[in-house]
């Protein structure tokens, strides 16, 4: 009879509680909002595209943090939701329907459905098995996309239009798209943060540490985790919607299992469970990837060992380090 939670306590970061914790996110979003200004003042314009991409992945990493960091469930199939979001968007645009107000509900619905079905099965297990099954389901979607020969199959699908929002062509300029993504990121961040602080969120956090205690207190742990899993999948679907619009292209590679691994790393890099840590982690990851890949095509040879060293020698990620630097207010 194992009563151990899916994650050891080291991963645990208590939910945002004090007002001081708002400082970092406000600073973060403020800086992001000023980025287009920096570009007009002479920063290379490639930076804006990179930051946009980073924010899209930040939405995905943030959604993962809800189940991984807050809920303690190591899901290794999260890229599937990113991919589903991107494919639904790509297919609808290809079929002539580019309106976001129609695409997004479909994205959210399909992601929720997929999360509900696979989550109900995955959550019957725990620990190592949970990790393997989420990975396997992610892989299933990957192969499904490869088999979609009507929509490019293995080669992927090129999009010849971008989405509109209520008929407005907001995505056509780089700056316009940037602010749309930023708004979406801010919205998702606020949503997840409210969820974590809610009655529901408290039970989810408690269940990470001590599921047995939570169940003898009268809560169905599996059901609570399933709700979190579904919400998390839906938010990741939103990231997929933006990703398709960002790259004008969707392919099975969007949901390869390496992508799922990268999302986990982003969440952990920033500081798991802290929500804004996932955003910082995603941005740091994409900038590092960009920098290293300019250095050498074999950048993974450098990046792989960096990940290993990071795991072996640091705790608490970037947010943890910032907290220590900031005088160790501590948890």
């Amino acid at each position: 009879m194992s009563t151990a939670p899916a994650l050891a306590e080291t991963v645990a970061a208590p939910a945002p509680r004090r007002r001081g914790r708002l400082l970092l996110p406000i600073l973060l979003f403020g800086l992001l909002a000023l980025a287009p200004l920096a570009v007009s003042l002479g920063m290379p314009s490639g930076w804006l595209a990179l930051l946009t991409r980073a924010m899209i992945f930040a939405i995905a990493a943030l959604s993962l943090d809800l189940i991984l960091g807050v809920g303690g469930l190591v899901s290794f199939g999260h890229a599937a939701f990113l991919g589903i979001g991107a494919y639904v968007t790509g297919i609808m645009i290809t079929e002539g329907q580019a309106e976001a107000l129609l695409i997004l509900p479909v994205v959210l619905g399909i992601c929720a459905l997929f999360a509900a079905i696979t989550g109900a099965i995955c959550l019957r297990t725990r620990g190592v098995t949970f990790i393997m099954i989420t990975l396997a389901f992610g892989q299933m979607v990957y192969f499904l996309a490869q088999a979609l020969s009507a929509y490019g199959g293995d080669d992927g699908l090129t999009l010849y239009a971008k989405s509109t929002i209520a008929g407005l062509d907001l995505f056509s300029t780089r700056t316009g798209f940037f602010y749309c993504v930023l708004a979406a990121l801010a919205g998702c961040y606020a949503l997840v943060r409210i969820l974590v602080a809610s009655r529901f969120g408290r039970i989810l956090r408690a269940a990470r540490e001590n599921p047995v205690r939570v169940s003898v207190t009268g809560f169905d742990v599996t059901r609570i985790r399933l709700v979190a899993y579904v919400i998390s999948g839906m938010v990741a679907g939103i990231a997929g919607f933006f990703l398709a619009n960002h790259t004008d292209f969707v392919s099975p590679a969007f949901m390869s299992w390496q992508r799922s691994g990268e999302l986990i790393f982003m969440a952990v890099l920033g500081g798991v469970g802290s929500l804004h840590g996932a955003i910082i982690g995603a941005i740091a990851y994409l900038i590092a990837e960009d920098g290293l890949s300019h250095l050498t095509e074999h950048w993974r040879v450098i990046f792989g060992p960096l990940i290993i060293l990071f795991v072996l020698f640091t705790r608490g990620g970037i947010v943890g380090m910032l907290r220590k630097l900031g005088g160790g207010g501590g948890a």
């Binding site: 792989g304 960096l306 990940i307 795991v311």
Partner: peptide
């Protein structure tokens, strides 16, 4: 994570 890094390498 660590074994994932190993795969990349």
């Amino acid at each position: 994570l660590a074994t994932f890094g190993l795969i990349l390498l």
